[in-house]
Simulated scan of single mutants.
Amino acid sequence: MRKQIRTAIAASAIVVLIALTSWSLTRPAPTKVSAPTAIPVRVISVVKEDVPRYVTGIGSVLSLHSVIVRPQVDGILTKLLVKEGQQVKAGDLLATIDDRSIRATLAQAQAQLGQSQAQLDVAQIDLKRYRLLTTDNGISKQTFDQQQALVHQLQATVLGNQASIEAAQVQLSYTQIRSPVTGRVGIRNVDEGNFLRVSDAQGLFSVTQIDPIAVEFSLPQQMLPTLQALVHGSTPAAVQAYIGNTDNGTLLGVGKLTLIDNQVTANTGTIRAKAEFSNPTEKLWPGQLVTIKIQTAIDRDALKVPPQVVQRGIDQHFAYRVNGNKVEVVPVQVVYQDSELTLIKGPNAGDVLVSDGQSRLKPGARVEILAAPSIVGPDTAMETAR
């Protein structure tokens, strides 16, 4: 009996041992609690400095004086005294037209004047005699009046002859075509020997002033108060003209704002303005499209950050400020913003703000600051390849 009991106890012990061994082998491993992963971000420091504000627009270069040279009398073009592209001054002789017919007309008018003047002299001598004879009734009053009327008639004829001479002289002056402005001669449309007519619309060529020169541009009508303040300021506002954009384009010249149009263009809601440039190197050319840049104001001791630093919240703007190895939210007031920079209030100068990687951040998140990407130039690339 006792032997059976011992056998049962041993069998139970074996079963319990097998069960414990099976449970220890099949139970789940304990879960380890890991520390939160740091979020990689890039940062910038808030900079305090004087920041100028600019406005940009597209403008067209215009000549201050551009004239199409046309004939004012009919005739054959006898000489062209300038070349295409030549620089001329106001009053320079450009071309001549055959003047023989006009000179003959002038000579005829001068001859008629001499004839009328001789007749007038004789009539005036006779009038003096008749005046003396009327004192003792030597001639009738009617004869004297007729002689006086003849003198007046001949005086009018002399005046008409003089007017004909002046008209012929004006026509003669038109046979010498002179430059009305200082500028550059354009492409010639007519050669020597052609018969010119006053009705010809094409003209001989154009003379266009290059220096100084103007740029006309349009800005939104909201800029009107700013433009008015710049025009009426004590110092003319500087206007820069670029070929291409203002970041990596070529600066063609620096001028001054001179004029605002007298009305807003209703269909576009823009206001036209004009700036004048000194152009001795002739980098600005009539008809050229340029980008203009005007400094409208300057913010003293402003806090400047890149535009991507500032985030838009539900109620206000904010930025992530790095404090140790974590970030915190700081409210931000946007003072001014454009495509290149943002002026803010709220943070302090020198604060480290997150500029890239904000999408995964929340207050108190751990961050890992990445180095700014380096710009690899051609020399560096060649050295690396070696």
Rank of each mutant, 00 (worst) to 15 (best):
K141V: 02
I139H: 01
I44T: 13
T26A: 14
Q110V: 12
T26C: 11
P36N: 08
T96V: 11
S24V: 11
I44K: 09
P40T: 06
A104L: 04
D74H: 10
L25A: 15
A123C: 06
L120G: 03
L20V: 10
L113M: 12
A35G: 11
W23G: 13
L132E: 09
S45M: 11
Y130V: 13
D99R: 00
T105V: 12
A107T: 01
Q110M: 15
L154M: 00
K89I: 13
I76F: 04
D50I: 07
D145P: 03
L106Y: 07
T96S: 15
L113R: 06
A35I: 01
V82W: 06
I125A: 12
Q112R: 12
L77C: 14
A19Q: 14
Q119I: 01
A149D: 00
G59T: 10
V55F: 15
S60H: 12
L81F: 07
K79L: 08
T134D: 09
Q147Y: 01
T134P: 06
A35M: 10
A29T: 05
S34W: 08
T134E: 15
L64M: 14
T31Q: 14
E84I: 02
T21P: 00
E49A: 04
R70C: 13
V55E: 11
L20G: 04
Q115G: 03
R70I: 15
V46C: 13
I97T: 02
T78E: 08
D126M: 09
D145M: 11
Q155L: 00
Q124S: 10
A111V: 06
L150E: 04
I39Q: 15
P40L: 00
